[in-house]
Design a protein around this nucleic acid. Structure first.
Length: 368
DNA sequence: CTCCAGGATAACC
DNA sequence: GGTTATCATGGA
């Protein structure tokens, strides 16, 4: 078993902005967008000896996300600014969530990767560690598939963002100061699947959150797939392919607006045709370009675009400024009878540059 | 009964 | 370019 590198050792070179020229990852890594000059090494020790640093994007070599592989279990090293309890509270807040569940301080879900669907239990027995255990007979067969699971969990919990600058920023910000005090260690829990993120955004437009979860459940149970594992049923969000072939009639039973049904089918068709992909959005240049690409899609306005960029693409500047929940959170914190105007929010958020997404996520937590 | 929910669109002026 | 009715439903 490979020894896990502790967090502090790898901290410095990554977050100081210092340019690193010699990058390594492992032969089995499937990451498609490595930095240039990335060399593959058989072992971490050899790479380090040669003066190489682990690839920041690579699932198996990240400093913080380093993992050990014990066949039935993966262990991720997480940053200091990670509170399993705080993230658990967020994940547990919605009883009607259908894509995972929480029980005894553990999280359970199926993670679809290519043809396989491993079911995992995620727990944290000790600080700075996250344990991923495969349930039943769902353990992935090959090493890179396990690496994909590790990558998925790291992405889901946003383990690769260094929150220290955000916490520094918050010290001198009236709103954020209270937010980070209350929710220290909370991460921007993501929606890694782009189609799911867009659908969730569209479904959530202009209705209260409990009803949005009900609609999502109906959609998933009608058109998604499920697998059984250890006596539990695990649902997987429908693929674009599943939805693209549907008609308005098929979606009527869900009881959402006809327009939303059109939007969902339209987005599914665009994705089946390859006209929207996560890679395109991630690599299109900057956040504003990605926002423009999304807003052009029928059914996606500024709010949904920023929501998707925030929860799926994890762009730090994504900012759903029209969000009613954000308005209510600010109103609550300021103790004012009226919700803030857009101008007031712009003023309050002027110093949040590159942390708008995290600020929003933290402020939302005051609502529940 | 009315109003508001983690909005977007088409059809107006 | 700004404003407004419309959409489905549930909860306060």
């Amino acid at each position: 078993m490979e020894k896990t590198t502790s967090y502090p050792k790898w901290d410095a070179p990554y977050f100081t902005g210092k340019k690193i020229e010699k990058i390594y990852c492992f032969p089995w890594c499937m990451e498609k967008f490595h930095p240039e000059n990335t060399i593959r090494f058989q072992s971490r020790a050899n790479a380090e000896q040669a003066g190489y640093r682990p690839c920041k994007k690579c699932c198996s070599t990240l400093p913080i996300g380093a993992w050990t592989d014990k066949q039935s279990e993966l262990t991720l090293v997480v940053p200091k600014e990670f509170s399993f309890n705080e993230n658990m509270k967020y994940l547990s807040k919605e009883p009607n969530e259908c894509l995972f569940y929480c029980k005894n301080q553990r999280i359970y879900r199926a993670i679809p990767i290519k043809e396989e669907t491993p079911v995992v239990e995620i727990r944290s027995d000790q600080d700075n560690m996250l344990h991923i255990r495969f349930l039943g007979t769902t353990m992935p067969s090959c090493k890179w598939m396990r690496a994909e699971v590790a990558r998925y969990v790291r992405d889901w919990f946003d383990l690769d963002t260094d929150l220290l600058p955000f916490y520094d920023l918050a010290k001198s910000d009236a709103l954020l100061q209270r937010a980070v005090t209350h929710f220290t260690g909370l991460r921007n829990i993501g929606i890694p699947d782009l189609f799911e993120a867009i659908c969730w955004g569209i479904i959530g437009q202009q209705i209260n959150l409990p009803f949005a979860y009900t609609l999502k459940r109906r959609l998933v149970e009608a058109f998604g797939r499920s697998i059984e594992c250890d006596g539990e049923t695990y649902w997987i969000f429908p693929s674009p392919h599943d939805i693209a072939a549907l008609t308005m009639e098929d979606l009527k039973g869900l009881q959402m607006t006809g327009k939303k049904c059109e939007y969902l089918i339209g987005v599914a068709q665009l994705m089946v045709e390859g006209k929207i992909t996560k890679e395109q959005l991630a690599n299109c240049g900057d956040y504003k370009k990605a926002e423009n690409m999304l807003v052009k899609i029928r059914g996606i306005g500024p709010w949904t675009a920023n929501y998707v960029l925030m929860r799926c693409l994890r762009m730090p500047s994504a900012f759903p400024i029209d969000d009613v929940g954000l308005h209510n959170a600010i109103k609550y914190l300021q103790g004012t009878p009226q919700k803030p105007t857009k101008a007031e929010i712009l003023k309050l958020s002027a110093t949040w540059t590159n942390w708008e997404a995290y600020a929003t996520f933290y402020l939302w937590r005051f609502l529940y």
